[in-house]
Design a protein around this nucleic acid. Structure first.
Length: 465
RNA sequence: GGCGGCGUGGCCGAGUGGUUUAGGCAGGGGCCUGCAAAGCCCCGUACGGCGGUUCGAUUCCGCCCGCCGCCUCCA
């Protein structure tokens, strides 16, 4: 069983399931007002790997990730561009899903949108007011943080120390500086929904509280997102749920940053920060490999150099897929470990070691190292003439890569233009005749037009470099 | 000011109280090859600094230095 670090307790612990064999996960998705950046790609990949692994181990996973399509930035940005907020959000949501698909990330089972849940949010806020834990001011409705047991849990700080560090806001008549807004009363020109406090719109991520509980039920197993969401975003979600007497997530998981040049990524650094940019400039699988190579809670460094290294590693896996004719197991969706009763053509010990790594707080780096070890073993066995052994190792590589969502199937053969095909043919003839000078010249020509030339027992093969 | 994290061989990046190594990339030597490519084998004596605990610390503790993040809407 998978053990995961729980942000709320600071300890690695087994996930506690409401019902054996089933797990529900809610991951905070995007606020769609701009193109996604590398950080968005990382969280998508991290939770995709988690999800695929849980499926691999035989669990039934319900995975929900929201789209927040109403918020200050959306309103601002739409106004700047002179378009409706809904037009803006539709555009960027589409960009997001295209990137998700390119990354090989499974689409969530459900994608709730904030704007579809405003009525339910109003109900929640009204309930909180009725319970006396929320109060109305001139500009909105606020949650009284003092009333929430354990506020500060996810900030990893007691209420006292949060209060000490709180920024001073002058223009809001809150009872405590830490109180946060649940409902914002409308300002002119903003999209609004009706409420008992007049027209307005939702405040601090009430949508995530309502949508997660609605779709997954009380005490759903896991809530996740990027580390920056721990506080105040998730803290405030939890506060609302707890204050409303609901049981919220049992377990919290947060992934680390993407850094560029050792610093938290920012647009001003302008290097590889756009997800689309990365996907256009490199093999999309390289980002997954990069993410897998380090622990999900560690920062990862994404630079042209680390991406190139990842691509080189990928080439090694692809070469094995090509050599051993691994089929594309991912084409039919996530894979499940069949265990003892499964395929005798697989290396059960390797699968066990793999699971041991993954069960330990998703040690993907260790799991990946294991996969690379298996690749070397498969190659070695093949070189030594042990075809069945090699096949077994290689098929296991295929299975484990698939479990990680890493597509290393035998790639479709490159289209070879007639001129190149002709050079290959002439090179074979030259080599057969022992005309090495002619053969070398033909290789040089092929390489010049971007081919990688390999001579095998069946003659010359070329592929794109 | 409060809280948290990090510092590993050329680069990236795991891990562990000590006997035999993470892994990838790059590099060197060898095998294979007409020469290559791919693949295989071998190679680097790394763990920020100073103390402490210990028979023994990169791994535990303390201090220091350096870097980074969070403390109200950024994955």
């Amino acid at each position: 069983m998978l053990e995961l670090y729980d942000t709320a307790t600071g300890e690695v612990a087994p996930l506690s399931l409401r019902e054996p064999g089933r797990i529900s996960i809610y991951v905070c998705g995007l606020t769609v007002y701009d193109a996604p950046h590398l950080g968005h790609g990382r969280f998508a990949l991290v939770f995709d790997v988690l999800r695929r692994y849980l499926i691999f181990t035989g669990l039934t996973v319900t995975y929900v990730s929201n789209i927040t399509d109403i918020d200050d930035k959306i309103i601002e940005r739409a106004a700047e561009q002179g378009i409706e907020p809904s037009e803006l959000t539709a555009t960027y949501e589409q960009v997001w899903w295209e990137a998700v698909d390119a990354l090989g990330v499974l689409r969530p089972d459900q994608v709730p949108h904030a704007t579809a849940y405003v009525d339910r949010m109003v109900e929640l806020v009204a309930d909180l007011v009725a319970r006396g834990v929320a109060y109305e001011t001139a500009d909105g409705v606020y949650l009284s943080v003092e009333e929430v047991p354990g506020y500060g849990l996810l900030a990893l700080q007691p209420l006292e120390s949060l209060r000490a560090g709180a920024r001073v806001e002058s223009d809001v008549d809150k009872r405590s500086p830490l109180d946060f807004v649940l409902w914002k009363k409308a300002k002119p020109g903003e999209p609004t929904w009706p409420s008992p406090w007049g027209p307005g719109r939702p405040g601090w991520h009430t949508e995530c509280v309502v949508m997660s509980l609605d779709l997954l039920g009380d005490g759903f197993e896991l809530h996740g997102g990027g580390m920056d969401l721990m506080f105040p975003h998730h803290e405030n979600e939890r506060a609302q749920a707890v204050a409303a007497g609901r049981q919220f997530a049992r377990h919290w998981m947060h992934n680390g940053w993407v850094t560029v040049g050792g610093e938290k990524m920012s647009k001003s650094l302008g290097n590889f920060t756009s997800l689309d940019d990365l996907l256009a400039r490199s093999d999309p699988r390289a980002y997954r490999l990069l993410v897998l190579r380090s622990h999900y809670r560690s920062p990862i460094e994404v630079t042209p150099d680390t991406v190139t290294q990842a691509e080189a590693g990928l080439a090694r896996l692809d070469e094995a897929a090509r050599r051993f004719h691994l089929e594309d197991v991912l084409a039919s969706g996530p894979v499940i470990d069949q265990g003892e009763s499964g395929d005798p053509e697989l290396d059960a010990d390797a699968v066990t070691s793999f699971r041991k790594c993954m069960d330990d707080d998703l040690d993907t780096a260790g799991a990946l190292a294991m996969v690379f070890d298996l690749v070397r073993r498969a190659n070695g066995e093949a070189d030594a003439g042990d075809a069945p052994g090699a096949q077994r190792s290689a098929r296991t590589v295929g299975l484990l890569c698939a479990a990680l969502g890493l597509r290393v199937a035998h790639p479709t053969e490159d289209e070879i233009d007639p001129a190149s095909a002709d050079r290959v043919r002439r090179r074979d003839e030259a080599r057969a005749a022992g005309s090495w000078t002619a053969a070398d010249a033909l290789r040089a020509e092929l390489e010049q037009s971007g081919w990688l030339v390999e001579d095998g027992p069946d003659g010359t093969r070329i592929r794109r470099r």
